[in-house]
Simulated assay, not measured.
Amino acid sequence: MADSYPQVGDSRRILRSETVLVLALSLGASAVSSLISFVGSLTKPGGLKDQAATLNGSYAPGRPWLDLAWQMFGIATALVPVALVAHLLIREGAGLRTIGFDRTRPWSDLGRGTLVAAGIGSAGLAFYLVARASGFNLTVVPESLPDVWWKFPVLILSAAENSVVEEVIVVAYLLRRLDQLGWTPMASLVASSVLRGSYHLYQGIGGFIGNMVMGVVFVLLYRRWGRVGPLVVAHTLLDIGAFVGYALLAGKVDWLPTP
């Protein structure tokens, strides 16, 4: 009997199904959850800025070792979809090097990522403050962890995990699959950036718009550089600045909103 090979139409259906499943297991599900959360915030008495969205909170208040176990479990399980993407790319005959998530150009990735973070960081903070003051955003609480020895290491690990998950899946993987499915570059840019904004909608309209704009910039940079490494670096630095900066400054400076 002759071997049976998938036809072009079958391959496209497989790619579509694969992409939907990866997103359903990761940031697509987060987008739906964020939308539900946003609707809940809108329908709750009081303005958005009087409500808070906590990014890194305690899972077991008063039990630091159990809390640490839950924190590490949450970080590890969040990275599983990235491992799935790596597996799928390897089966494709590509691998993570194809999307520029490797150690072949560490200094270039670090330098570019640092410049991007410096450019986006200050603008992003200013936009958040304006959006919150205008009533379009909840008060974002980057961390509310207890003051224990593992607080800052966990915040840094959480920043790195967020960055790897978002940039590998929403930029590198999604754009690769949409390209293979025949989407135009503009349609892929819109899909990636709107998805990024959607899973930040729990922060409010400001969180949606700000992250969507960041998504546009990141897609354009990825297209230009062909590497997701600098974007992971930039996102990690931005989140470390937000998480650790809030932990150090909350309640000590007047310009930083707190609940």
Rank of each mutant, 00 (worst) to 15 (best):
residue 103 R to S: 12
residue 113 G to T: 00
residue 41 S to N: 12
residue 48 L to A: 10
residue 39 V to R: 10
residue 44 K to S: 14
residue 208 F to L: 14
residue 252 K to M: 06
residue 250 A to F: 07
residue 195 L to W: 12
residue 223 R to M: 04
residue 242 A to H: 02
residue 202 Y to E: 07
residue 40 G to F: 12
residue 19 T to Q: 09
residue 116 V to I: 15
residue 103 R to G: 05
residue 68 L to K: 08
residue 121 G to D: 05
residue 151 K to L: 10
residue 242 A to I: 10
residue 116 V to A: 01
residue 181 L to I: 13
residue 254 D to L: 11
residue 221 L to C: 01
residue 113 G to P: 04
residue 16 R to V: 12
residue 205 I to W: 15
residue 143 E to H: 02
residue 172 A to S: 11
residue 12 R to F: 10
residue 232 V to T: 00
residue 122 S to V: 13
residue 29 A to G: 07
residue 238 L to P: 00
residue 210 G to C: 10
residue 201 L to N: 02
residue 27 L to A: 00
residue 44 K to T: 15
residue 88 L to K: 06
residue 110 L to C: 06
residue 176 R to F: 13
residue 17 S to G: 13
residue 140 V to W: 04
residue 193 S to E: 11
residue 200 H to V: 00
residue 209 I to A: 13
residue 3 D to T: 06
residue 102 D to A: 05
residue 232 V to M: 07
residue 120 I to K: 02
residue 31 A to Q: 09
residue 249 L to D: 04
residue 30 S to L: 15
residue 248 L to I: 14
residue 157 L to M: 14
residue 23 L to A: 09
residue 135 G to L: 11
residue 123 A to R: 02
residue 60 A to D: 09
residue 56 N to P: 01
residue 62 G to H: 14
residue 231 L to A: 00
residue 112 R to E: 03
residue 159 A to P: 04
residue 55 L to R: 08
residue 9 G to R: 14
residue 186 M to I: 15
residue 15 L to E: 08
residue 247 A to F: 08
residue 215 G to A: 11
residue 166 E to W: 13
residue 131 A to T: 13
residue 221 L to W: 13
residue 151 K to D: 05
residue 106 P to S: 09
residue 212 M to T: 15
residue 229 G to L: 06
residue 24 A to Y: 07
residue 230 P to R: 00
residue 97 R to N: 06
residue 180 Q to L: 15
residue 205 I to E: 05
residue 221 L to P: 01
residue 48 L to Y: 11
residue 3 D to N: 03
residue 130 V to G: 01
residue 175 L to D: 07
residue 172 A to K: 01
residue 124 G to H: 06
residue 131 A to I: 09
residue 230 P to G: 01
residue 15 L to C: 03
residue 115 L to A: 14
residue 208 F to M: 04
residue 235 H to T: 04
residue 166 E to H: 09
